[in-house]
Amino acid sequence: MKILVAEDDQLMMKMLEFRLRKDGHDVIITHDGREAVAKLDEFQPDLVITDIMMPYLSGLEVVSAVKKKYPAGTPVIILSGMGQENVVLEAFQLGADDYMTKPFSPNELSVRVRRFDVSAVK
């Protein structure tokens, strides 16, 4: 599966990239919201994983951009340090498909990602 990851923290990025690659996914790295949205067309990802607090565009803006571009497909998982109820609600209202808070369990992420893998289900 082609996964686009938007995360500004270097260490988090490295960890996500490593784990997702090990799980057999194609990982495209972007370091802020603007870069993520810009690369959507080029890479046509099957899944987007995004942080919320990022430079230029926040993760919530990434969600609404993805949903605008692909009204039917491309699920978005939010992986953020912010766990406030209203943020989570807002994320889902904007169309996010899943929400995980940091600290996160890599094993759990792996399972949640697999849920969106259409080819695996088939």
Binding site: D9, L11, M12, M15, K102, P103, F104, S105, P106, N107, E108
Partner: peptide, 15 residues
């Protein structure tokens, strides 16, 4: 320092 920053972001068995 590296272990701490990783630990802050991670939970579960990895942690």
């Amino acid at each position: 320092g590296e272990l701490i920053s990783a630990k802050k972001n991670i939970s579960g068995t990895s942690s």
